[in-house]
């Protein structure tokens, strides 16, 4: 990527630190009933790795890199799509007692 988004040293540490607290806060207040969907949901979120794999594949120069990049994108895409479908199916089923109540 171009130099204008260079993330080095301490800036990276700040990003990691704030992101870590965000993750901690989100999970910390969740009722146990949602633990499985949330694990699955966070599993979906790290499917973003597919974006990195696409970058690596687009910049591949050798057959070996192309091969690895191809599998990387394949895996990442499966992670994202599978995580989404499974989470959505689970959450769709959570309904309160009184469905008729507006």
């Amino acid at each position: 990527m171009d130099a204008h988004t260079t993330i080095t040293g301490f800036v990276a540490l700040y990003i990691f630190m704030l992101a870590a607290f965000t993750g901690y806060e989100i999970i910390g207040r969740v009722p146990a009933i949602l633990h499985t969907p949330l694990m699955s949901g966070s599993n979906f979120v790290h499917g973003i790795v597919v974006v990195g794999a696409i970058y690596a594949l687009l910049n591949a120069t050798t057959m070996l890199e192309q091969g690895i990049g191809f599998v990387g994108v394949l895996f990442g895409a499966a992670n994202a799509a599978g995580g989404y479908v499974v989470t959505e199916r689970m959450l769709e089923m959570f309904k309160p007692s009184d469905k008729k109540k507006p």
């Binding site: 990691f16 607290f21 965000t22 993750g23 999970i27 790290h46």
Partner: peptide, 10 residues
């Protein structure tokens, strides 16, 4: 970085 770390800590 952000998505990975959020999931890492969560």
């Amino acid at each position: 970085m952000i998505a990975g770390m959020v999931v890492g800590s969560a």
